[in-house]
Write a protein that binds this DNA or RNA. Structure first.
Length: 321
DNA sequence: CTCCAGGGATGAT
DNA sequence: ATCATCCATGGA
């Protein structure tokens, strides 16, 4: 097995893979094992160098050394060509953004395969990252093509065609719950090319978002994730509960009646042309940065044990913690 | 506009 | 061990 090395400055592999934009990489032996499209890959960062080992899928043996493009393929996937200094320099200068910017140095928005990204974000609805990772693994192990890097076995993400041939019951066995129906319906649209994901690359943001939102299981949040992580639309600003909390706390403090559309309109103008990057930095910072002692104690928790009737009150209080 | 299904991990008790 | 909480979409 061949080892490839490439330069990767201003890049933090572990933070990038752990920031909730992609769900299938496993940390192993100081590196990460996963797939890039159909290629099994093991990658490890040592300073400004990425060390890479690749394998093949069992179904297509092709160890073709003459046309080896491993380095370019990996550099493209991790978007090492994004001008990160320029991008983070374009973020607004405000306290929340500045804290996230310095915390997330080296975090990149990667270029994911479109179908895989769309499918996983359909599965992500109402799920937390740990659980989405399990869904990804189950779908891969059950429906994906097997391959290996050295002796390590792993599976590529199944094609839309393959999932279109499965059943809702089979998908439910992968812990998808009600998402199974949406994933299956969307897989069929994609497999039939009624939804031509590659062709949609040519559409302007507005039209692309409209097409994505017309797919079963895709609303504004999922569409924005797919636009950002698979279509390189770096303005797209997905708003989930974490980001909503950040926006309300940091940018609309002590204001009630801030609607979802107010927030997305604000985000579009405040964070600018690389808003998606800004969003990812704010998201990762909010989720993983150590909190000050005392500020993380949930004041209302002891009170809401039993009464369902109180859940309404709780909901109003939550964003404040 | 509001309400709520859905289900497995997670953290509090 | 139980129990509340986390969560996006789509339909009532």
């Amino acid at each position: 097995m061949k080892l490839t090395e490439i330069d990767a400055s201003n890049f933090d592999l572990a933070m990038t893979l752990g920031s909730g934009q992609v769900f299938h990489w496993d940390g192993i032996d100081g590196g990460f094992l996963g797939t890039i499209g159909d290629r099994p890959v093991w990658v490890e960062q040592q300073g400004d160098i990425l060390k890479i080992r690749t394998g093949d899928l069992d179904c297509l043996k092709q160890s073709n050394l003459e046309t080896d493009d491993t380095g370019r393929m990996v550099a493209n996937y991790f978007a090492l060509d994004h001008p990160l200094a320029e991008i983070s320099g374009s973020f607004p200068d405000d306290p929340a953004m500045n804290a996230a910017r310095s915390y997330c140095r080296g975090l990149r928005i990667i270029r994911q395969p479109k179908w895989e990204c769309l499918a996983m974000f359909i599965c992500s609805s109402m799920k937390q990252v740990a659980h989405i990772r399990q869904i990804s693994k189950k779908l891969r192990d059950r429906f994906g093509e097997a391959g290996k890097v050295d002796a390590k076995i792993l599976h590529a993400f199944p094609s839309a065609t393959r999932l279109a041939q499965s059943s809702e019951a089979e998908l439910r066995e992968c812990a998808l719950g009600y998402r199974a129906k949406n994933l299956l319906a969307t897989a069929r649209l994609v497999a039939s090319k009624e939804a031509d994901l590659e062709k949609w690359s040519a559409l302007p943001d507005i039209d692309l978002r409209a097409r994505l939102c017309a797919l079963p299981g895709v609303g504004a949040k999922v569409a924005n994730c797919v636009m950002l992580f698979a279509y390189e639309r770096l303005r797209s600003f997905p708003i989930d509960v974490w980001i909503e909390r950040v926006l309300r706390e940091k940018y609309f403090p002590r204001k009630r009646k801030v609607t979802a559309s107010t927030l997305s309109a604000f985000a579009a103008v405040h964070f600018g042309e690389h808003g998606g990057y800004a969003q990812q930095y704010l998201f990762h910072h909010a989720r993983t940065a150590p909190r000050l002692v005392g500020s993380r104690k949930s004041a209302g928790k002891g009170l809401n044990r039993k009464a369902k009737a109180r859940s309404k009150i709780d909901r109003v209080k939550r964003p404040g913690l």
